[in-house]
Simulated assay, not measured.
Amino acid sequence: MSKQTISTAGELALSLKSAARLFGHRRLLVCAGDADWCKTQVVEMVPALAESVLLIGEDFPELAASNSEVIAAKQCLSRLGREHQNIIFNAHAGFDVDAFGAISGTLSAGGILVLLIPPLDRWQYFHDPEHRRMQVYPQQFEDISGRYLQRLSQMIKASNQLSLLTQGGGLRIQEAENNPDKKTPGDKDETVTAPCKTRSQMRAVRGIHKVFRGHRRRPLVLTADRGRGKSAALGIAAAQLLLEGVEQIIITAPSKSTAEVFFHHAGKVLGEAHAGLSGRLQFIPPDDLVQTMPATQLLLVDEAAAIPTPLLEKMLTHHSRIVYASTIHGYEGTGRGFCHPLQKGSG
């Protein structure tokens, strides 16, 4: 859809979703205007998307009957490890930078993230409710500088990695990629086959199979940016191994909700066999795992950087076939404590 044919916010959202799905990418749309104007854009977008939408920061009564969920910004960290197809973050209710960074990492491939902000030229003067968290006595609320918001506004204006819709009628659409299957250095000339979505994910799945079939005491560490399919790769590989006859696989993660993506993708691969094989795929919290040390043919550790290093070391010592997957930066922890002992332990 060209810029000339877009007449509503709903059509714009659908256009960006179409491009995101085509290339398996994620799209960011910034809507800059006053609160009432931004609200109008949301009321148009949500029904047009016809999918579940996560709204952050403020409820919209007009969308009560829609397939949407509303959470406060402070709840965003609890969403790590999950996936969302559509996210709308309302900065008029306060721009919690940590919350925005965390929730943006849960956007799945083909998804759209909409950021609602005040007019770009006035955002730095906005009395953001989040500034109260930065206030230190004897500072007054009005003393908090908006220099960060000024800098962010400048970046949004200049960036070609997002789409921008302004209340004055301005519209800039992110340019589409020319090659949806662009190779990265080291990629082999091979076709991506389902259920994997990328070559790197296929390599990860093969690596997990190799951990199970190869020499003992050769753990695998999967690291990548958030949202690149690590948890999905664990789920795909686990399901494939169960279908091949593996008797016991354990998955551990900081919480059961963190492993939702893993179980979703494992269930898709298992299909009708899920009921008969699910008992052979067990989730055990990290603390319980190192206390009981149950026997398993393969241990999978998701979001490993969020698990204390001593627990990771105990797992590595006890289990001979183990796969760790995690980002090594951001909201799971710094990740440096995750890397170093594993390098030492794996020789």
Score class of each variant (00 low, 15 high):
residue 338 F to I: 02
residue 240 Q to Y: 02
residue 241 L to R: 10
residue 202 M to A: 10
residue 61 P to A: 05
residue 48 A to Q: 02
residue 139 Q to C: 03
residue 72 A to C: 01
residue 29 L to P: 03
residue 262 F to P: 01
residue 146 G to M: 12
residue 247 E to L: 06
residue 45 M to G: 05
residue 323 V to M: 08
residue 163 S to I: 10
residue 45 M to Y: 04
residue 238 A to W: 13
residue 225 D to P: 07
residue 163 S to Y: 09
residue 273 A to E: 15
residue 192 V to Q: 11
residue 208 I to P: 00
residue 178 N to Y: 09
residue 192 V to C: 05
residue 189 D to S: 07
residue 87 I to K: 04
residue 31 C to M: 13
residue 332 E to A: 12
residue 106 T to M: 06
residue 102 A to N: 01
residue 257 S to M: 05
residue 55 L to W: 07
residue 271 G to P: 07
residue 146 G to D: 03
residue 49 L to T: 04
residue 237 A to W: 06
residue 48 A to T: 03
residue 193 T to C: 08
residue 121 D to I: 07
residue 317 T to H: 09
residue 239 A to C: 08
residue 58 E to W: 03
residue 261 V to S: 02
residue 15 S to F: 03
residue 191 T to M: 05
residue 164 L to E: 10
residue 137 Y to Q: 10
residue 171 L to D: 07
residue 303 E to D: 14
residue 138 P to S: 13
residue 57 G to S: 14
residue 139 Q to Y: 07
residue 169 G to P: 09
residue 124 Q to G: 02
residue 24 G to S: 11
residue 283 F to T: 06
residue 279 G to K: 13
residue 321 R to P: 01
residue 133 R to T: 06
residue 216 R to H: 09
residue 84 H to A: 06
residue 278 S to H: 12
residue 82 R to I: 00
residue 74 K to D: 13
residue 118 P to S: 04
residue 190 E to Q: 13
residue 19 A to V: 04
residue 310 P to K: 00
residue 220 L to T: 01
residue 15 S to H: 14
residue 70 V to Y: 12
residue 261 V to Y: 05
residue 119 P to D: 15
residue 300 L to H: 01
residue 171 L to F: 12
residue 216 R to C: 03
residue 3 K to T: 11
residue 204 A to P: 00
residue 301 V to L: 08
residue 149 L to T: 11
residue 320 S to N: 12
residue 18 S to V: 04
residue 136 V to G: 02
residue 134 M to H: 15
residue 68 S to H: 14
residue 236 I to Y: 11
residue 4 Q to I: 05
residue 23 F to C: 15
residue 272 E to W: 06
residue 193 T to E: 15
residue 141 F to R: 11
residue 57 G to C: 10
residue 330 G to D: 15
residue 190 E to T: 09
residue 327 T to M: 02
residue 286 P to A: 07
residue 168 G to V: 08
residue 259 A to Y: 05
residue 211 V to M: 02
residue 56 I to Q: 07
residue 210 K to V: 01
residue 33 G to V: 09
residue 266 A to P: 09
residue 115 L to Q: 14
residue 248 Q to T: 03
residue 241 L to W: 12
residue 125 Y to M: 08
residue 317 T to S: 14
residue 1 M to K: 13
residue 80 L to Y: 01
residue 335 G to N: 12
residue 346 S to F: 11
residue 251 I to R: 05
residue 318 H to A: 13
residue 170 G to Y: 04
residue 313 E to M: 11
residue 21 R to G: 03
residue 328 I to G: 03
residue 202 M to R: 10
residue 267 G to D: 12
residue 158 A to S: 13
residue 128 D to E: 07
residue 22 L to K: 14
residue 158 A to Y: 14
residue 129 P to E: 02
residue 47 P to S: 11
residue 260 E to V: 09
residue 40 T to M: 02
residue 291 Q to L: 10
residue 157 K to H: 15
residue 82 R to L: 00
residue 266 A to H: 07
residue 12 L to H: 06
residue 179 N to W: 11
residue 125 Y to Q: 14
residue 93 A to S: 15
residue 343 Q to Y: 11
residue 89 F to H: 05
residue 91 A to D: 08
residue 225 D to E: 13
residue 304 A to I: 08
residue 187 D to A: 06
residue 320 S to T: 15
residue 176 A to L: 06
residue 269 V to N: 12
residue 307 I to T: 07
residue 8 T to M: 00
residue 311 L to I: 12
residue 166 T to R: 08
residue 231 S to C: 04
residue 334 T to Y: 00
residue 45 M to I: 13
residue 311 L to G: 00
residue 22 L to V: 01
